[in-house]
Amino acid sequence: MIQRSPCLGARISGLADDSLPDDVRDRSLAHAAGCAGCREALDSERLLVARVRALPAPGPSDALMARLLAMGETGGPLPPRPGRVAGTARLPSAVVVGRIASPSAPRPPRLPAVSVRPPTRREHRRSRRLLAAAAGVLGVGGVAGTALGSSLPSSGSGVVPPLDQLTLQHGVTGRENPFSDAGLVHLVTPGPSATAVPALLQVETGR
């Protein structure tokens, strides 16, 4: 299926499956970076391409293969067909989920019988005590959990990693590695620290 984007048209399909020439692809990607409509079309096209590529290679179904293989075998007598053939006596056969059970087939073993007797008064009392105890525990636990949970949004004294600055530090260190992605990082949120990367970097010089 070829989707069309508002600006890139049918090129969006080639962009999704990497079939465009390099320069056309770069220009198209640059446009998609700033055009929400084309980006959305590209995302859905890429998703489609990924799903199509993930599909298994088409082949004959297992059932068809089984039937084809069975045709090559010598085979035994055909199974009896359900229903009565004209001129013969009716047999007490029963269809059990896809197979025909003949009267001579062995029956499955019976499970041992379980005696069912009504609970005694003592057991009734024990059950009531158990239920009451469980309700009590749940009640106490619920009240305690609610009270504790409502007072724990933040400890206030915990560690708050400076994620923006750590991300930039990752980029700065990564720039020593010219072929990695690390130098391509950006900030999550702009702020005064954004332009002052070394501000965090009070680097120890002698430990």
Binding site: G171, V172, V197, L201
Partner: peptide
């Protein structure tokens, strides 16, 4: 955003 060539 300016990233120096080498970290401090």
């Amino acid at each position: 955003v300016t990233m120096p060539d080498r970290p401090d």
